[in-house]
Amino acid sequence: MAGKGIKSLSEALRGLSLGAQPCRTRPARKAAMGCTRTMATAVEGKPSNITRSVSEVYTPLTTVPVTIHAFPTLEPRSLEAWSTKHLYLPLRRDILHLAVVYEGDKTRQGTASSKTRWEVSGSHRKMRPQKGMGMARIGTRQSPLMRHGGKVFGPKPRDFSTKLNRKVYDLAWRTALSYRYRRGELIVTEDGLDLPLPDEFLYAASKGVLGREIEDGFVSRYLAELLAGLKWGKEHGRTTFITGDRRPNLFTGLEAGGENGRALELDDVDVKDLLETGRIVIERSALREMIKMHSSDLVQRVQVPGLRTKPQLGTAIVQ
């Protein structure tokens, strides 16, 4: 009986869906507009295909392409198909805001501390007699009314962290990645993302003929020129590199030349980092791991035989 009820409910809901609506046209504006001037924001021409006929089969976009590049040549090496639920989510500024505030609250140190009158050191002797001195009555020198006395409602160490549902936070991660993807600011590289340094420099460094200052200066300038060539440098909004673990050349290079970008290990990345700087350069395995770790909202409790409970991580199209 219950099964029949659910079936009829689902039928009713299907009737309400967009796909079941007959093809409707936009109502044409009858009244003549007072202003005939063309506005800069006006849309020219009639928008086409805002509705879909019932006879047309609804085939929504399910995957988007992700090209894996070589670094630093930026040569496309392979192609993967990723679910739209991973990398093509609509922009939700509210969710991103929630996530950034949540992270900010969580990272507050919260160590500000002041002393109450009971914690200020010193004798609790009455400062002067209650009467007879011609002055106001006072008690101890720890009184909040006194200079160097205690603080009444001062800060005490506390935890500022707020709560955010795990599924909302995970959605924020993928929304941030999707935002970057849509803008063409997510560059996925092959595994082993690192800064290749010239052989002759490494040879000279291995011989110890360059001082540390010269080495630092060389790497910093070399990286600056490399990023400038790719239009990824300071003039183009800096670049965030994300790798699975610490890569010596890349990380030390960007420590020396931080004005052009930053390098982060996967464990150190948060949503705010994904929204900062001009672009995100991430290695393939780090992206997979990041999305794998933040897919809690994609798991369905209802198990249907033959259907996947969550979208598959990127599948190779061109290897």
Binding site: R77, T189, D191, G244, R284, A286, K292, T315, A316
Partner: peptide, 25 residues
């Protein structure tokens, strides 16, 4: 020595993440 080019998509991500930095070229 490291493998040339891209590792296949079936590579376990966790192990790949912790692998030492390898050159792509």
């Amino acid at each position: 020595s490291s493998s040339m080019g891209l590792t296949t998509t079936t590579t376990t991500t966790t192990t790949a993440l912790r692998a030492p930095a390898a050159s792509v070229t």
